[in-house]
């Protein structure tokens, strides 16, 4: 099956390369991006107090969601294009033809809603931390500590968002509603991933 992901240099459906070549190309972007997520997580106050098992579990569950937020700007809703890591732009129509389908549409929708909130860098950073600690907690050793960390970060985010634009009272709620959207995207992405085996 042809697969396209913005973290590839080029969509796999177009190049005629082997699965191994596609994987190597993807890995060149993917590995550093995941490392950046881990570094980001290490700087979230309280994250490193969690057990290593829970840190790994949270990162495994939340990395895609964090990357989706970080790379939301790759999706240009106005132009209906996606910019891949090679800086090449592909139209929505081309990408549909490469098997991105519903996931692509949902990513566009998410990016549009996030962009409409016009978050400052500080707000985006704190929101991204909330995204990570709000990831699925299946298999956690100490879910209560993660929940406590999540509550602390959400309180800080609420204070920051209200301070930035006190007149827009619904902005924080709209932002929090992005969390279930990200969970849905994560599930759609997992389904795609399961159809692409790397042996």
């Amino acid at each position: 099956l042809p697969q396209a992901c913005p973290m590839n240099s080029h969509p796999a459906g177009r190049s005629g390369r082997s699965v191994q070549e596609i994987w190597e190309d993807f890995s060149l972007s993917f590995t550093p991006a995941v490392r950046e997520v881990v570094e980001f997580a290490k700087h979230i106050p309280g994250f490193q107090a969690l057990s290593q098992h829970d840190q790994v579990t949270l990162l495994k569950a939340g990395t895609f969601e964090v990357l989706m937020v970080r790379f939301a700007s790759l999706f240009n809703v106005k132009e209906q294009t996606v910019t891949f890591m090679s800086r090449t732009k592909y139209s929505l129509e081309e990408l549909w033809g490469m098997g991105m389908g519903d996931l692509l549409s949902s990513m566009f929708e998410f990016s549009e809603k996030l962009s409409a909130l016009q978050l400052s860098d500080e707000e985006l950073g704190l929101f991204t931390a909330v995204v990570l600690v709000s990831a699925d907690r299946s298999g956690m050793e100490d879910a209560a500590s993660v929940e406590q960390l999540q509550e602390t970060l959400i309180r800080a985010l609420r204070a920051l968002v209200q301070k930035t634009r006190p007149a827009e009272s619904s902005r924080f709620t709209k932002l929090l509603l992005k969390l279930p959207d990200l969970r849905t995207l994560n599930n759609l992405h997992s389904e795609k991933l399961l159809s692409f085996r790397i042996d």
């Binding site: 590995t31 995941v34 490392r35 881990v38 990162l59 990395t63 399961l194 692409f196 085996r197």
Partner: peptide, 27 residues
């Protein structure tokens, strides 16, 4: 169902990054 994350070697990258092992190019 397999764990989708294991398809990407995600856990391995995360564990190495958490331990500060940024020099390993094996992925």
């Amino acid at each position: 169902f397999a764990d989708p994350a294991s398809n990407l070697g995600l856990e391995d990258i995360i564990r190495k990054a958490l331990m500060g092992n940024f020099d390993d190019k094996s992925e």
